Simulated scan of single mutants.
Amino acid sequence: MKLSRIAAAVTTAALAPAVLIASPAFAAGSDAPAAGNQPAPTTPDQPAPDQAEEDRKTILAIIAHPMASEYMKKAGQKAIADGPQAMRTFIEVDQHRIRLDDYRVAILRLTHGAGRSLTEGINDILDKGTTVEQLRHFYEVTQHELRDVDNRVEILKLLSTGGPSVKEACQKALNGSPADRVAFLKTGRFLAQASDDRVELARIDEGWDGRILSDAISKLLNGSPTPAELRHFLEVTQHELRDQDNRVAIARIIDGGGPELVKAGRAALAGTAAERAEFLKTGQHEARAKDEAAKDKQKPAPGKDDQGKGSGSGTPSAGSGSGSASGNTAVTAQGGNGAPLAATGAGDGTTLVAGGAGTALVAGAGLLLAARMRRAGAKA
């Protein structure tokens, strides 16, 4: 036998036990698992995932985010179209740069309707915010804190100027949460204001005499007005109706009035609503005073109707030299016995004195004449 064959036989004999032990038939002994409960075979290694496909899915998620701008969406779609390298560049570099710009634009838009605190915060973050994280925190957290500060300030202003219902609602909102304050400024304030407006309209109706405004207030309150309709009536409509009532009142006042009253009333009717209100408040009284003063000037002064006129039938006062006396001196004789004459008007006392003196003078002259005649008879 050749040596090669001997070596092959020895090798076969040596390997035979190992082969038998490893075979399934040999392994199936009393300690082997029962049939059907064999361990699962080892899963063969899977190939590495396709990086390009993963990048594509990542980009699609980025551009689907609510904060993604149109620019972000277009840039992501372009990167997908341009291939794996462009997608990797978009994910690692471009998306962060674009997101920084998107947050800046979104924060800048917050300035619309922003209060003082929020406005200052926006200016500060736009000047100092250099990372996406800083801008995101401001947009998602800080802006709401600053907005609540501004809401508190606005509510405090309403608290200082509002009516009873508004004040009560303001205090409740201030003691509540930020959401309560937002809800109050959005709707609660108007409901509270409507309650106060109803009270104010009832007060106006009670104190107003004009029919036009009063009728309109009654009609409004008996209906179902919205808060906006009540506010508009108080701020606009009531003043228009007041002026209509004022026009009616002025027309009644000047009807049959004096010249100055009519003149002032017509000027007010042709003027502004404020001028008509002023006429009713003070102008009508000033115009009436002028008309009264004009009437007083036209009346004759007492006792001076015939001043300066002489009497054609009375006796002229003594010493006048011309037969006339100052003032009204018309007199009539009261009997034929030489009694003093009556006088009318100014200077009555002077006339009586003059009449007495004249009578005494005549009597004295008669006595003197009689004495002379007696002396003449004696001499004869």
Rank of each mutant, 00 (worst) to 15 (best):
D291R: 05
P316K: 03
Q307T: 06
T315D: 10
D296N: 10
K299Q: 15
V331Q: 14
K304I: 09
G327Y: 03
A301D: 10
A301F: 11
Q334T: 14
G327W: 09
S313P: 00
A294V: 12
K297H: 05
G303R: 08
K295R: 13
T315P: 02
E292P: 00
A333H: 10
A325V: 00
G323W: 08
P316N: 09
Q298V: 12
A294M: 06
G303M: 13
G327L: 06
S317F: 00
A318E: 15
G327P: 14
G308F: 10
G308V: 11
S311A: 07
G327T: 02
G314A: 00
G323Q: 13
K297V: 07
E292D: 14
S322G: 07
A294Y: 01
A318Y: 07
S313E: 14
A333I: 08
T329N: 06
D296I: 02
A294I: 03
G319Q: 08
Q307M: 12
G327Q: 05
G303C: 03
Q298C: 01
T315I: 05
S313R: 03
E292W: 09
P316I: 00
P300Y: 09
A294D: 15
K299W: 08
T315V: 05
A293F: 02
T315K: 01
G321C: 02
K304H: 08
D291G: 08
S317R: 07
G321I: 02
